[in-house]
Amino acid sequence: MIQQSPVRRPHAKSRRGTAIVEFAVCLPLLALLVFGTIEAASRIFLKQTLSISAYEAAREAIRVGSTTAGSKASGNSILTARKVKQSNIVFSPTDITNANRGELITVSVSAPTQPNSQVLGKFIADKTITAQVVMVKE
């Protein structure tokens, strides 16, 4: 039987060093991509939550016999369930109890991004996201 000598790779050690350097360069970029994606998804979730809250508050506000406090509680229940911090619900007109049938009721719900951030809130500028819904009083 003929014995073959093992194949020698003269550059194996230098290639291993290259892989470590490539990893060190790519790791921060991958981390930034992952955390940026999480932060973008968090902001989309916040905007969607504010929209749903404004819709529910407006839906309650347009009913016959509804009150501002009851409508605000309806919107706040969504915000509380989704753990939104420092939110604000504003009605126009301010007192919907006296709104006439056919009158437009506007509900604006806003919240800052920094306290509602999942990962990078302390490193990204704080902005306020607002959702607005307009419905006609029944």
Rank of each mutant, 00 (worst) to 15 (best):
A73R: 13
V64A: 07
S42R: 11
I62A: 03
E39C: 10
P112M: 11
I89S: 03
I52S: 10
T49G: 04
V109S: 06
N100A: 11
A61G: 03
P93W: 02
I105F: 01
L29M: 10
E103Y: 10
F45L: 15
L29D: 05
L29V: 07
I89N: 05
E103Q: 14
V107F: 03
D95M: 08
L30D: 08
D95G: 11
G75V: 05
S51W: 10
T113I: 04
S51E: 11
L79K: 04
L27Y: 01
L29E: 03
R101G: 02
L30N: 06
P112I: 09
A57L: 09
S66V: 00
S51I: 12
G70V: 02
R59G: 08
S87D: 11
T97P: 08
R82D: 03
N88V: 13
S87K: 04
A73T: 13
T37S: 15
A81F: 00
T106P: 00
K72V: 07
A58P: 07
F91I: 04
A31F: 13
Y55M: 09
S74Y: 13
A99I: 09
P93H: 07
T80S: 09
T37R: 08
G102D: 12
K83Q: 08
S77W: 12
S77T: 14
G70N: 02
L46R: 08
I44M: 15
T94L: 13
L29G: 08
L30R: 05
A111P: 04
T80N: 13
S53E: 02
I38M: 14
R82L: 14
L27K: 00
Q86M: 02
F35T: 12
N76E: 15
S71H: 02
Q48Y: 09
A31R: 00
D95V: 15
R43Y: 15
S110H: 11
E39W: 13
I52E: 10
A57Y: 07
T37L: 15
N100D: 14
